[in-house]
Protein backbone atom coordinates (compact mmCIF):
# COMPACT_ATOMS: atom_id res chain seq x y z
CA UNK A 1 0.00 0.00 0.00
CA UNK A 2 1.11 3.58 -0.45
CA UNK A 3 2.58 5.31 2.52
CA UNK A 4 -0.48 7.42 3.22
CA UNK A 5 -4.20 6.80 2.97
CA UNK A 6 -6.83 7.73 0.47
CA UNK A 7 -8.08 10.70 2.45
CA UNK A 8 -4.83 12.58 2.03
CA UNK A 9 -5.10 12.54 -1.71
CA UNK A 10 -8.74 13.47 -1.64
CA UNK A 11 -8.08 16.46 0.60
CA UNK A 12 -5.18 17.64 -1.56
CA UNK A 13 -7.38 17.27 -4.63
CA UNK A 14 -10.12 19.22 -2.89
CA UNK A 15 -7.62 21.97 -2.15
CA UNK A 16 -6.47 22.08 -5.75
CA UNK A 17 -10.07 22.20 -6.87
CA UNK A 18 -10.91 25.04 -4.49
CA UNK A 19 -7.89 27.07 -5.61
CA UNK A 20 -8.88 26.49 -9.21
CA UNK A 21 -12.39 27.71 -8.49
CA UNK A 22 -10.97 30.72 -6.66
CA UNK A 23 -8.78 31.54 -9.64
CA UNK A 24 -11.70 31.34 -12.05
CA UNK A 25 -13.92 33.37 -9.77
CA UNK A 26 -11.54 36.23 -9.14
CA UNK A 27 -9.41 36.65 -12.26
CA UNK A 28 -10.23 38.89 -15.16
CA UNK A 29 -7.36 37.72 -17.33
CA UNK A 30 -8.41 34.94 -19.69
CA UNK A 31 -5.03 33.21 -19.42
CA UNK A 32 -5.40 33.14 -15.65
CA UNK A 33 -8.81 31.58 -15.97
CA UNK A 34 -7.30 28.93 -18.20
CA UNK A 35 -4.79 28.19 -15.43
CA UNK A 36 -7.66 27.80 -13.00
CA UNK A 37 -9.29 25.30 -15.31
CA UNK A 38 -6.05 23.34 -15.49
CA UNK A 39 -5.92 23.24 -11.70
CA UNK A 40 -9.45 21.86 -11.56
CA UNK A 41 -8.63 19.22 -14.16
CA UNK A 42 -5.59 18.20 -12.15
CA UNK A 43 -7.70 17.92 -9.02
CA UNK A 44 -10.13 15.65 -10.82
CA UNK A 45 -7.25 13.55 -12.11
CA UNK A 46 -5.76 13.11 -8.65
CA UNK A 47 -9.16 11.92 -7.46
CA UNK A 48 -9.51 9.48 -10.33
CA UNK A 49 -6.10 7.95 -9.82
CA UNK A 50 -6.55 7.78 -6.06
CA UNK A 51 -9.86 5.97 -6.39
CA UNK A 52 -8.33 3.71 -8.98
CA UNK A 53 -5.59 2.85 -6.53
CA UNK A 54 -7.61 2.41 -3.37
CA UNK A 55 -11.19 1.50 -4.14
CA UNK A 56 -12.41 -1.79 -5.45
CA UNK A 57 -13.12 -1.66 -9.18
CA UNK A 58 -16.65 -1.75 -10.50
CA UNK A 59 -17.90 -5.25 -11.06
CA UNK A 60 -19.21 -4.31 -14.48
CA UNK A 61 -15.71 -4.44 -15.92
CA UNK A 62 -15.52 -8.19 -15.70
CA UNK A 63 -16.65 -11.23 -13.74
CA UNK A 64 -16.29 -10.78 -10.03
CA UNK A 65 -13.95 -13.71 -9.78
CA UNK A 66 -11.27 -11.84 -11.71
CA UNK A 67 -11.09 -8.69 -9.67
CA UNK A 68 -7.30 -8.79 -9.61
CA UNK A 69 -6.30 -11.39 -12.22
CA UNK A 70 -2.80 -12.70 -12.02
CA UNK A 71 -0.28 -11.70 -14.62
CA UNK A 72 -0.36 -14.24 -17.40
CA UNK A 73 -3.67 -15.80 -16.43
CA UNK A 74 -6.42 -16.24 -18.98
CA UNK A 75 -8.66 -13.76 -17.18
CA UNK A 76 -5.88 -11.21 -17.33
CA UNK A 77 -5.45 -11.77 -21.02
CA UNK A 78 -9.14 -11.13 -21.57
CA UNK A 79 -9.98 -8.35 -19.15
CA UNK A 80 -6.67 -6.89 -18.07
CA UNK A 81 -6.72 -5.36 -14.63
CA UNK A 82 -10.18 -3.90 -14.08
CA UNK A 83 -8.88 -1.34 -11.61
CA UNK A 84 -6.78 0.33 -14.31
CA UNK A 85 -9.93 2.09 -15.55
CA UNK A 86 -9.28 5.10 -13.30
CA UNK A 87 -5.78 5.52 -14.68
CA UNK A 88 -7.04 5.19 -18.23
CA UNK A 89 -9.66 7.80 -17.58
CA UNK A 90 -7.05 10.14 -16.16
CA UNK A 91 -4.97 9.65 -19.29
CA UNK A 92 -7.95 10.63 -21.39
CA UNK A 93 -8.44 13.70 -19.23
CA UNK A 94 -4.84 14.72 -19.87
CA UNK A 95 -5.43 14.35 -23.61
CA UNK A 96 -8.58 16.42 -23.38
CA UNK A 97 -6.76 19.03 -21.32
CA UNK A 98 -4.16 19.35 -24.03
CA UNK A 99 -6.81 19.81 -26.69
CA UNK A 100 -8.69 22.25 -24.51
CA UNK A 101 -5.61 24.33 -23.80
CA UNK A 102 -4.73 24.54 -27.47
CA UNK A 103 -8.20 25.63 -28.52
CA UNK A 104 -8.60 27.99 -25.57
CA UNK A 105 -5.33 29.71 -26.37
CA UNK A 106 -6.37 30.00 -29.99
CA UNK A 107 -9.53 31.71 -28.81
CA UNK A 108 -7.63 33.97 -26.45
CA UNK A 109 -5.29 35.03 -29.22
CA UNK A 110 -8.29 35.71 -31.42
CA UNK A 111 -9.88 37.85 -28.74
CA UNK A 112 -6.62 39.66 -28.17
CA UNK A 113 -6.30 40.46 -31.83
CA UNK A 114 -9.81 41.83 -32.13
CA UNK A 115 -10.19 43.50 -28.74
CA UNK A 116 -6.59 44.29 -27.89
CA UNK A 117 -7.15 42.91 -24.42
CA UNK A 118 -7.75 39.58 -22.73
CA UNK A 119 -9.96 40.87 -19.94
CA UNK A 120 -12.98 38.57 -20.03
CA UNK A 121 -15.18 41.32 -18.60
CA UNK A 122 -14.48 43.41 -21.64
CA UNK A 123 -15.32 40.68 -24.14
CA UNK A 124 -18.95 41.61 -24.36
CA UNK A 125 -19.42 41.88 -28.10
CA UNK A 126 -21.77 38.88 -28.10
CA UNK A 127 -23.72 40.03 -25.03
CA UNK A 128 -27.41 40.37 -25.70
Amino acid sequence: MPVVGLEWFLVIAAFLFATGVFTILTRKNAVSILMGVELILNAANVNLVAFSRFVKPAATLGPQSVEFPLQGSAAHAVYGQPWIAGNVFAAFVIVLAAAEAAVALGLILGIYRTAGDVDVDEATALKG
Binding site: E7, L10, F17, A18, F22, T26, N29
Partner: peptide, 25 residues
Amino acid sequence: NESTNPVVGAVISGFLFLALAYVSL
Protein backbone atom coordinates in the same frame (compact mmCIF):
# COMPACT_ATOMS: atom_id res chain seq x y z
CA ASN B 1 -3.18 40.18 -13.23
CA GLU B 2 -5.66 42.00 -11.08
CA SER B 3 -8.38 40.11 -9.29
CA THR B 4 -11.93 41.10 -8.53
CA ASN B 5 -14.16 40.18 -5.64
CA PRO B 6 -11.51 38.24 -3.71
CA VAL B 7 -13.74 38.08 -0.62
CA VAL B 8 -16.62 36.40 -2.36
CA GLY B 9 -14.30 34.06 -4.22
CA ALA B 10 -12.45 33.13 -1.06
CA VAL B 11 -15.66 32.45 0.84
CA ILE B 12 -17.14 30.29 -1.88
CA SER B 13 -14.01 28.33 -2.65
CA GLY B 14 -13.26 28.01 1.06
CA PHE B 15 -16.61 26.48 1.77
CA LEU B 16 -16.28 24.31 -1.31
CA PHE B 17 -13.00 23.01 0.05
CA LEU B 18 -14.52 22.41 3.47
CA ALA B 19 -17.47 20.53 2.00
CA LEU B 20 -15.26 18.35 -0.18
CA ALA B 21 -12.81 17.68 2.62
CA TYR B 22 -15.66 16.87 4.97
CA VAL B 23 -17.05 14.31 2.56
CA SER B 24 -13.59 12.87 1.95
CA LEU B 25 -12.83 12.47 5.62
